[in-house]
C-alpha cells in the first residue's frame, strides 16, 4: 500500500486528547493528482486526522510525510507554506474581515506576487458570487457562500494538497453538487485532494480512492468503486 511516489504518506499515526486515543495507528497514502476520501461516522476521528496533518494537534506516535518531508514538529503556519491547504470543519471564515481580506490573508507566506493576482482572477472565475461580494464582511455571506470562500481561501495558499473537512455540511443539495463539481475542477487543474465527508455517496462519486475510518482505525480501503460496491459500506454509509 505504501508507495514512494505518495505526496502524503501517513504511517501508524496515533493522536490523543489527554488520555483518550482519537487515532490509533492510521496508515494511508495520497498520491499526486488523486482525490482520496475518508468516510466515517461522527467521532470516528476524521477531523482529528486532518488537524494532525496540518499541525494543529500534536501526534503521539507515527509519521506524516509530505513530499518526503517529515512534518513532525513543523509549526502549523509552515506546513501551509510547504503546500498543504486546509478547509476546516465549520468553514473557519473570519466574519469580521471582508471577503477579499479573507482571501488576502491566505497569501501570507507567498512571495510570488504576479501569481497571486492570477489566483484572485482564477478564484473569482470559479466563484463569481465571491467576486460580487468581495468588499462585504464575510459574516454577511450565506452558508453556501461561506463554504465557497473557505475553499477559495485554501486555493489562495496555493497548496499542492488540499484537505477538506465536511465541505457539504449544512448545505442544500444543489449547493453540495456545486461544491463537489468545483472540487472536481480544482483536482483536474492539478491539486491533490484529501476529502473528509459524512456524505459518503457524494464523496465516493468524486473520489478515486477511499478509506473507511471507525473509532480511530482504518477498517476498509479501496477504490471508490470498490467501496461503493462493498456491502458493509452500503449498509453503514450509503443507506442500504
Amino acid at each position: 500500500m505504501t508507495s514512494n511516489s505518495a505526496l502524503l504518506s501517513i504511517q501508524n499515526l496515533h493522536v490523543a486528547y489527554g488520555n483518550i486515543l482519537a487515532l490509533q495507528g492510521i496508515s494511508l497514502d495520497v498520491r499526486e493528482g488523486e482525490i482520496v476520501t475518508l468516510i466515517g461516522a461522527n467521532g470516528a476521528g476524521k477531523s482529528t486526522l486532518l488537524r494532525a496533518i496540518s499541525g494543529l494537534v500534536p501526534m503521539r506516535e507515527g509519521r506524516i510525510l509530505f513530499a518526503g518531508v517529515d512534518l513532525r514538529s513543523v509549526p502549523a503556519h509552515q506546513i501551509v507554506e510547504m503546500g498543504i491547504a486546509h478547509v476546516p470543519e465549520g468553514r473557519g471564515i473570519f466574519a469580521n474581515l471582508t471577503v477579499l481580506e479573507n482571501l488576502k490573508l491566505a497569501t501570507w507566506s507567498r512571495k510570488d506576487r504576479a501569481n497571486i493576482q492570477k489566483d484572485y482572477r482564477r478564484v473569482f472565475e470559479l466563484f463569481p458570487r465571491l467576486a460580487e461580494r468581495q468588499y462585504q464582511l464575510a459574516g454577511t455571506l450565506s452558508g453556501g457562500e461561506q463554504q465557497m470562500l473557505a475553499v477559495a481561501r485554501a486555493l489562495m495558499t496555493r497548496g499542492r494538497l488540499m484537505l477538506l473537512d465536511e465541505p457539504s455540511m449544512g448545505l442544500a443539495p444543489v449547493l453540495v453538487r456545486e461544491i463537489f463539481n468545483i472540487l472536481g475542477e480544482i483536482n483536474a487543474a492539478g491539486t491533490t485532494i484529501l476529502l473528509v465527508e459524512q456524505n459518503a455517496r457524494q464523496a465516493l462519486k468524486v473520489a478515486h480512492r477511499g478509506y473507511v475510518l471507525e473509532t480511530g482505525r482504518i477498517t476498509l480501503a479501496g477504490t471508490a468503486q470498490e467501496l461503493s460496491d462493498n456491502p458493509q459500506v452500503k449498509a453503514a454509509y450509503l443507506g442500504g
Binding site: 494543529l56 507554506e81 469580521n96 490573508l105
Partner: peptide
C-alpha cells in the same frame, strides 16, 4: 483582526 475572531484557524492561512 483575524486572530481576534478565531485564533485557531489563523495558522491555516500560513500566519505565525
Amino acid at each position: 483582526r483575524a486572530i481576534s475572531w478565531d485564533k485557531f484557524t489563523v495558522p491555516l492561512m500560513g500566519v505565525p
